[in-house]
Amino acid sequence: MTTTTNINIQPDAVYALARSGANLYAARASGCYRSQDGGVTWRNLFATLDTPLAATAVVAAGDTVLAGVKGAVLRSDDAGESWQTVGLSAPPPLVAALAVSPNYAEDGIVAAGTSDAGVFVSTDRGASWIPWNFGLVDQHVYTLAFSPDFAADGTLFAGTESGIFRSHNGGRSWREVPFPMDAAPVLSLSISPAFRRDGRLYAGTEAHGLWLSDDGGSTWQRILRDRATAAVNAIQVTPAGVVWLLLEDGLIGSSDAGHTWDRSYSFPPDRLALTLLAGEPSTMLVGFSNGDVLPAG
């Protein structure tokens, strides 16, 4: 990767990035930031709050922005200008992941994965949250992924400390996916845009590389053997079928479902890449451990 722009924001880790229209959002240890100029300048949207909060996850849809913090999800209906705090059940869990339903405009469903209290689901655009953890025996959730066909199949996956769980009813109950427990934790999940047809699901692990399922999670094969121990922090599958993997030290791409990796970009060694914002290569952004947000392609 050629580093083009070092965006000057506070030196703290970027945990998540989100985009809605022209607005970019970054969840960082020092708050939730917004950029309206493609990531050149950033403003801390939590600066107006009474107490400083670390944002650990962020998603956006239209002018609605949801930011995960310890014990709550902060919700804004005006692109982050003002916030409403919606508490999760005590004791306060840390929100590790937020995911928005592909049909958010109609169903208003958002899911929050927490580091020790499982999954909370909101069906009213983040105004209230209910813990739905039936069958989720591992409540250390690192990542969530909605099926692209969620309106029809109600499917949601959760990557956890010990593997992967699947819900077929919008997160109300969960079943184990036969993912090898030794390969967990699962840090990232991504579902093929043609999931209904190809049943393809990618799982990135902390120390056992990338795994692929072609049958909706029933069987798994390990791919990316030459980078076997790299932590896969994020995965993105583009509508064209290109798979992008964010490793701690680089970004690699595959045009053949992960069998060969023909695109590769490396990052400066003084920082770890933590999060990837979906988009085409020219518009992808990567968040780093030192607070940088850089274009990927």
Binding site: A117, D138, Q139, G163, E176
Partner: peptide, 14 residues
Amino acid sequence: IGGQGDPRRLREHL
């Protein structure tokens, strides 16, 4: 609510 045992051991037990 939210037992903090090792999830792997709990799943193996299940």
